[in-house]
Structure formats: structure tokens, C-alpha cells
Design a protein around this nucleic acid. Structure first.
Lengths: 149, 149
DNA sequence: CTTCATGTAACTTAATTAGTTACGAATGGC
DNA sequence: GCCATTCGTAACTAATTAAGTTACATGAAG
């Protein structure tokens, strides 16, 4: 799993879970999808469990399942549950007392606040169901073209 | 200089340059403002020179100056010249051929495209002149309150 | 009571970036 | 011409962060 791909890797995993709603998938299986380690998976999606996006169970037949219907799980919630920041830049003071820095940070924080609100709003309209629908569309297309050839 | 503070550090530097339009500031002086090394400064703002945002000159009296008026330098240009990404997540394929991944990346890239357009648009309306104005406002306020006490 | 699975701590490894040293190339003052 | 100054850049070191790994305790199912 690459450095900044926690969101896409997690979505990948979740779509697989949405695609097998009847059974629990183990961290080992999930790790296989994104070519990583079961422990990394458990660590990564631990926050999703706390947010109710997924549930986990131990022992025989245990593993991971969605906590609710895919159309009620938005990318905004997923991103937040992963603890991801939507904007990459920091605005922590490094020279407290410097008025130039204060001005810079004030403007940047204003922008950040507005931007994060905007991005979260947009992400809240994209659900896991949209992703699985897109996946199925691709799946059907491949099926058709395979027949055609 | 902290890890994700390249944008705010660069803005800090640029406001100082805008505040001294008559003379060139050396990388050493600029480094002092953000508590780092002259070489780090030169490296960081090298891209701004290529973008025409700043100019540099060597030798006696050399150093850095703004390449044009502060009200014609937007945060969008600065951010771009720094090579900063506006969104932090990666969408590079790690399992080429996996339809689930393709669906995830397609949706995420759509979002990214739209989001980057939006953020850049907003950043293009904030100029260095806005930052210096904010700085001067703070400066005057402190002056007044100092007098009052 | 054995097997399978998660939960989590602790450690190792890899990648990235800041910081540093060093030196070459311009530039301007004398 | 020569020297001080300043950038440009390469090469190296150090610090930080996140992934990967190992190990083991906990709990559930048969």
C-alpha cells in the first residue's frame, strides 16, 4: 500500500465488502485485494468500526462486514473515519508573535475552513453504492466485450 | 520548517519581500524569518523564480525580489509554483486490471478534478496584496494598543 | 479444547523531506 | 584584476512518518 492511498485502498476494500454482503471477509482476504498485510488492514479500518461503517467479529466465520447499506455510507464519513485531512497544508505557527505569520495563517485558515466545508459537502453526496454501481457497470461491459470477441 | 508548511512558509517570505520592495533580501535573511537554512529557502522558492513570481540576483546587493506587483500574484500561482498538490490522496493504480480499483479510481479522479478546479479558482482570488494588507492591519492595531497602554 | 479470527503493542524497514556541507558561477566594489 | 558576496546545485546526513512484520492476548464457533 503506497503512502497516500489509504482512502482509495479503503474504498477498494469496502466495495469488495459491499459485493459480498452475505458473508464476512477476513482481514487476510481484504489485505489480498490491496496487496498488503492483514494487520495493516485492521489498523487502517479500525476507525471505520468505531464510526459504525463496518463491523468485525472474531473466531470461526469471523471477519468484516458493512455496518449499514452502501447507499447510506458516504465518502465524507469514510474519509473522516480514516482521520484523513482533506487539505494537505499545515497552518501551525512556527514563530508565535510574528505579525506576518499571523496574517498568513489567518488568511490560510479562512481558506481552509471554507474549502474543507465545500469538499466535505461534495464527498457526502458520493456513496459506496455509487462506487459499486460503477464497478458493476465495468464488470458487465467486460462481460459483453468478452462475448463479442 | 515543519513538514507540511511549505506554502505558509513561502507566503511568510513573500510578504516580507513585498514589505521591502526597494531592496533585495538574501536567502540568509529569508531563512531567518522562517527559522531554517538558506539552502532550503533557495530550493523551496526556485520554482517561484521559474514562474516569474520572484527574481533572484547574485553577488553584492543580490538576493530576492518580487517579480511583479503583489496584487498580481495569487495564492493559486504560488501553490502551483511550489509543486504543491491541493488534495492529499493518491489515485495511482496498484492492481492494474482490477475492476473494483478502476471504479474507485474513476470516481475519485472525477472528484479530484472538480475539487482542484474549485480550490484553484478560490485561491486565484487571494493575492499577496491581500496578505500584506492583513499584515499591515495587524501592525497598526498593535501600534495603537501599545500607545493605549 | 482446538481452531480461527480480531485487537493491539512493539519493533523493523522504507520512503520522504528538511537540514547541512561544499563548491562552482556570477556580480559588483575596490 | 582581485576579493567579497550571493545564488545554484549536488551530495550527503538526520529526522520523521507510515507501512510492514512479529508476537501474543482475547474471544467466538464448532
Amino acid at each position: 500500500m503506497k503512502r497516500n492511498s489509504r482512502l482509495s485502498s479503503t474504498l477498494h476494500i469496502l466495495v469488495h465488502m459491499a459485493d459480498a454482503p452475505d458473508r464476512a471477509l477476513t482481514s487476510e482476504q481484504l489485505a489480498g485485494f490491496i496487496h498488503t498485510n492483514p494487520v495493516v488492514v485492521r489498523r487502517t479500518i479500525a476507525g471505520l468500526r468505531e464510526a459504525g461503517i463496518v463491523t468485525s467479529s472474531r473466531g470461526h466465520g469471523g471477519g468484516w462486514q458493512l455496518g449499514r447499506a452502501p447507499d447510506r455510507i458516504s465518502l465524507a464519513e469514510i474519509s473522516a473515519a480514516l482521520g484523513e485531512t482533506l487539505l494537505p497544508f499545515s497552518t501551525e505557527p512556527e514563530s508565535p508573535g510574528c505579525l506576518v505569520e499571523q496574517a498568513v495563517i489567518a488568511v490560510l485558515d479562512d481558506f481552509r475552513l471554507e474549502a474543507e466545508r465545500l469538499l466535505a459537502e461534495r464527498l457526502s453526496h458520493i456513496t459506496l453504492a455509487d462506487l459499486t454501481a460503477d464497478f458493476r457497470r465495468r464488470y458487465d461491459l467486460i462481460g459483453i466485450s468478452s462475448h463479442a470477441v
